[in-house]
């Protein structure tokens, strides 16, 4: 009985997700999304991997992009859809409930940019590898990939500091979505290995957060 109550308390609470994550991250998530949106003012067609509550998708649509977003969490998708309807962006944004495994159904060379915030750190190694492989396939030549996520700091001291600081954030994420993130050891390296040239890597928050911008230099022929 008691354990059941405890498990229930940890149920999904997507409606308060943005607020809690923003508080836990001391405003960093919103500013990262604004930075990404600013990079993509000219992008026509954008894919948002793990779109969550649709905050970034809505920002991009307001700038004039056609956005497709997907998230595996049904309740998150519902909140995102409501946000899009509320903002009258239904013509510009479509939200799907699916995981990265469904990316093999997307057409080749269709997107100008792929974005993802705080989603890659929730994926398994295999899923990240798979997602990046398909990002390369679905992007138009010279398309951009922008991923912002938790990363493992490079220096030992910062690593220790990072573990201490991220505990409240981990707890917030766990309480609202029952998912735990795994900071990525080498985000830029993984994006680069997938066939992108790294344009920018901005590290912040004690080296524990990174935004990586990659560009698909050559048309994909595989």
């Amino acid at each position: 009985m008691f354990s059941y109550i405890f498990m229930k308390i940890l149920e999904n609470r997507p409606r308060s997700y943005d607020r809690m994550m923003d508080r836990a991250s001391r405003g960093r998530i919103l500013s990262v999304k604004q930075t990404i949106a600013a990079e993509l003012v000219d992008a026509n067609h954008v894919l948002d991997i793990g779109c969550g509550t649709g905050e970034l998708a809505a920002m991009l649509a307001v700038q004039g992009s056609k956005v497709e977003g997907f998230d595996v969490n049904a309740e998150m998708v519902e909140v995102a859809r409501q946000r899009i309807l509320k903002k009258n962006l239904a013509n510009a944004v479509s939200i799907h409930q699916m995981g990265v495994a469904g990316m093999d159904g997307f057409p080749d060379s269709d997107y100008d940019a792929v974005v993802s915030t705080l989603a890659f750190s929730e994926l398994s190694d295999d899923e990240r590898h798979f997602a990046l492989k398909h990002c390369r396939r679905i992007l138009k030549p010279y398309g951009l990939i922008l991923i912002a996520d938790e990363v493992v700091p490079q220096k030992k001291l910062k690593k220790i500091l990072h573990v201490t600081i991220r505990i409240p954030m981990l707890l917030a994420a766990y309480l609202v979505s029952r998912t735990a993130s795994h900071p990525i050891a080498d985000l830029a390296g993984e994006i680069s290995s997938a066939g992108f040239s790294i344009q920018k890597e901005i590290r912040s928050h004690g080296d524990s957060f990174a935004m990586v911008v990659g560009r698909l230099e050559m048309p994909d022929t595989t």
Binding site: A101, F130, R178
Partner: peptide, 16 residues
Amino acid sequence: GEDFNAHSVVSAIKTS
């Protein structure tokens, strides 16, 4: 609790 579901299995098959 529906945390172990078709999505988990499909994702593992496709990405592994």
